[in-house]
Design a binder for these strands. Structure first.
Length: 188
DNA sequence: GAAAAGATTACCT
DNA sequence: GGTAATCTTTTCC
């Protein structure tokens, strides 16, 4: 087992592509955060795409104070607050981003990364990380691996009230870290 | 200036 | 299964 997770970093070109594709290909990558006590990392297993002409997108009506990070360069982190938790996205094209919905803890990290709020809490992300450039030099980054993902499923996004019919949620089929729908689904 | 809504979660019955 | 927590941004008057 190597310990080189924190040295690899997915570059800007990865994020400067169609948002849905980035959302899909982020599955299985490692998201790492360097903190005072070391590096926390998770394996991304669930994402959602927020695109143009998408009423559920925070950037639907153009730049505002809150969403200004969504118009920064590809790879920029957009962190916002909802109720008492924060959620993190990675910017792709201007005004578009991928919500990091769930991650499986890596490297002995303990806690739940199921759901965008829990994922941020697990990694220690806060509003201070809004606007950070994950593609270059920051304490936050993405790396490939640790292993290949299984089957990927696509479905409707969670928790939104508009554009609910669009299938822009991506998840690793069967991964236990994927967030569960509010209503328990019938066993498969 | 005031009010409503929200890309959620935890805890209640 | 349902609702409260909690607070900032956005929107409307």
């Amino acid at each position: 087992m190597g310990r080189s997770v924190a040295t690899a970093r997915i570059g800007r070109a990865f994020f400067d592509r169609p948002t849905r594709r980035v959302a899909r290909e982020l599955l299985g990558t490692t998201c790492w955060v360097r903190g005072e006590a070391g590096v926390r990392s998770v394996r991304i297993v669930e994402t959602e795409a927020y695109v143009r002409a998408d009423p559920a997108n925070h950037a639907y009506r153009g730049p505002t104070r809150r969403n200004r990070s969504m118009f920064e360069r590809p790879g920029t982190l957009y962190v916002y607050r909802i109720h008492q938790v924060v959620c993190a996205n990675v910017v792709t094209r201007p005004g578009e981003a991928v919500l990091l919905r769930s991650g499986a803890p890596l490297g002995g990290l303990e806690g739940s990364g199921s759901g965008p709020g829990r994922l941020c809490r697990l990694l220690g992300l806060t509003l201070h990380d809004d606007g950070v450039d994950t593609a270059r030099g920051s304490r936050i980054g993405f790396a490939s691996g640790p292993d290949r993902v299984g089957r990927i499923r696509v479905g409707p996004r969670v928790g939104i009230s508009r554009a609910t019919e669009r299938r822009l949620r991506y998840l690793v089929d069967g991964d236990r870290a994927v967030s569960r729908p509010r209503r328990p689904r019938a066993p498969t």
